[in-house]
Design a protein around this nucleic acid. Structure first.
Lengths: 123, 123
DNA sequence: TTGACAAGTTAGCATAAGCTAATTATACTG
DNA sequence: CAGTATAATTAGCTTATGCTAACTTGTCAA
């Protein structure tokens, strides 16, 4: 089940909102990502069809098990990459910004390699 | 002058063909990138408009100075990232594949940081 | 109860990038 | 020279993603 970059971004945003506020709704996702509400609406429709999320009471967005797993993975990739980039001297803002793109490009294999490398040489 | 990922890929392909064959033409770019000739045609039109390339005799594609500089930069980023990924244990094919995406995500600042890091810790 | 605001959704449009099929242009070969 | 093959281009379509404007729904308060 190949997911687009943009879908992955929405998943990550929802997870961030869950961590920050406990809940996530479309309008908050729109704010968080800086996109319009209709864009979020479309993206959510797609993610729902792909069984990544579902809507509960009050339009709250929840992850399915598969969705949760995917979102956590993307988040981990983001964190690791950002940490690594800061570790080699990239400024915090830029590290974060570039991690947002790179996180979609690296496979699980690469994630594991970078994680091992980071722990072995950069802690 | 912000360039799209896809434009950067075309620039890199042209440079690779220059290095490999001395010349580059649209049909070869299409082969190299695995896209259709019309797609290359459109991309070349755009790159020409942006003064990155021009066409000489026999439809040969040449870089302008700005184009050459850009292409070399992307190529350097690609090489460094690929080298780095292989260095941390990623398989050659995957390293190359992922470098193709990551190369578009990293700034010159990050390139410099990674280059220094690589030279200092991974040679 | 009604009116207003917020949030979700729908409709319609734009842009980027790719494709196929068809057309034009070049160039080589018999 | 004529015909064929190769390459470039054009036209028209598709998909993905975003936007604005307009419409719907639901809640809360006067």
């Amino acid at each position: 089940m190949k997911k687009s970059e943009s879908s992955e971004d929405y998943m990550k945003s929802i997870l961030i909102l869950h961590k920050r506020n406990g809940v996530a709704r479309s309008a908050e996702v729109a704010m968080e990502m800086g996109v319009s509400r209709p864009s979020v609406c479309n993206a959510m429709k797609k993610l729902r069809k792909e069984n990544m999320i579902y809507f509960g009471e009050n339009d709250h967005i929840y992850f399915t098990d598969a969705g949760k797993k995917l979102a956590e993975k993307i988040y981990s990739k983001h964190s690791l990459i950002s940490k690594f980039l800061k570790g080699i001297g990239v400024s915090k803002d830029r590290a974060d910004e570039e991690a947002c793109v790179i996180e979609h490009a690296i496979s699980d294999e690469t994630y594991e390699c970078l994680d091992k490398f980071y722990k072995a040489h950069m802690v």
